[in-house]
C-alpha cells in the first residue's frame, strides 16, 4: 500500500502546545517538509525565539538553539559563521523580530548573512496574552490597545518585507499566508526557495507568514483565516519582494 501522508522526518513526534486553529503548526510542517525534500536535516541548525514558538526546539528533529528575545538572527549568525556548510534558520514572531529584535534582523539582512528567517506575523503578542505588536493593524483591538490601535499615539505597523527589501544584502524576501491550500502550496514554494538561496550561498532570505491567532484575536479559526485574507493581506500584500537574479518567479 502506498503511503500518501506521513510525518516529515524533520518533525519530532512531540505534540505541539499551539492553540487550536493557530497556523504555527502548518508553518512547522512546511518547514519540515522542505528540510526533508532538500535532504539537509542532518546539517540543519534552527534558532527559535521567545514567543509562542519558544518550544519549537521540541518539534523540529534537528539541532536547535533557544535564543533570547529578538536575538535569533545574531545567534544564527554566530552558528553560520562557525558552520558555513550547515543550513541555519531562525524562526521568529513579530514581537521578537519587528520590535525588540529590529536591529538584529536589519543588520543580519544588511550583512547578507547566509541564513533563512521564518517570520510569523500574527499582528499580536500571542504568548503574553494578546498585547499590541509592532505589526498590529491600525484600529485593531488588543489588550494594550483596547480601543483599537490609535496611530496618533501608537504609531504605524512595520512592513518588514518592504523594509528589508531595500537592503542590498537581502537576497530573497517573500510574504505568504496559509489561508487556503493554494496559499499553503505557494508558501511552501517560497520557503523552499529561501532555503535554496541559502544553499547556493546567495545571502539573506526571509519568508514572512501572515499567521492567525484565533485565541487572542477572539475569532473562530475560520474567521481568523478570513481576517488574514481581508484585513491583513490588504495592509501586508502577499508576494515575492526580492528574488535573486536568475531565480524562478511565480510563487
Amino acid at each position: 500500500m502506498q503511503k500518501v501522508f506521513g510525518r516529515p522526518e524533520a518533525l519530532t513526534e512531540a505534540p505541539t502546545h499551539y492553540c487550536p486553529g493557530c497556523t504555527h503548526g502548518i508553518v512547522h510542517r512546511i518547514l519540515a517538509e522542505v528540510i526533508d525534500e532538500l535532504g539537509v536535516r542532518e546539517r540543519t541548525v534552527g534558532v527559535v525565539p521567545v514567543g509562542c514558538a519558544v518550544f519549537a526546539y521540541y518539534y523540529f528533529n534537528c539541532d536547535m538553539i533557544e535564543a533570547s528575545h529578538g536575538r535569533a538572527p545574531a545567534v544564527a549568525t554566530g552558528v553560520k559563521r562557525v558552520l558555513p556548510g550547515n543550513v541555519v534558520f531562525s524562526y521568529q514572531g513579530d514581537g521578537d523580530l519587528a520590535s525588540i529584535g529590529t536591529a538584529e534582523i536589519v543588520h543580519a539582512a544588511a550583512r547578507g548573512e547566509n541564513i533563512t528567517v521564518i517570520f510569523i506575523n500574527n499582528a499580536i503578542y500571542g504568548m503574553t496574552g494578546g498585547q499590541m505588536a509592532p505589526t498590529t493593524l491600525p484600529g485593531q483591538k488588543t489588550t494594550t490597545s483596547p480601543s483599537g490601535r490609535d496611530t496618533a499615539r501608537a504609531g504605524y505597523p512595520i512592513r518588514v518585507c518592504e523594509m528589508l527589501s531595500t537592503l542590498d544584502g537581502a537576497s530573497y524576501i517573500a510574504r505568504v499566508s496559509c489561508t487556503s491550500p493554494a496559499n499553503v502550496a505557494r508558501a511552501k514554494r517560497a520557503v523552499k526557495r529561501a532555503f535554496e538561496v541559502q544553499l547556493s550561498g546567495s545571502g539573506f532570505s526571509l519568508v514572512e507568514f501572515l499567521s492567525s491567532c484565533p485565541t487572542n484575536w477572539g475569532m473562530t479559526p475560520i474567521d481568523a483565516l478570513r481576517w488574514i485574507d481581508e484585513k491583513m493581506s490588504a495592509y501586508y500584500p502577499l508576494g515575492e519582494y526580492k528574488v535573486p537574479e536568475g531565480a524562478r518567479q511565480g510563487a
Partner: peptide, 12 residues
C-alpha cells in the same frame, strides 16, 4: 548582538 553571536558560535 555581539554577545548573542558569541552564544551561537559557542553553541556551534
Amino acid at each position: 548582538a555581539a554577545i548573542n553571536m558569541v552564544y551561537g558560535a559557542a553553541a556551534a
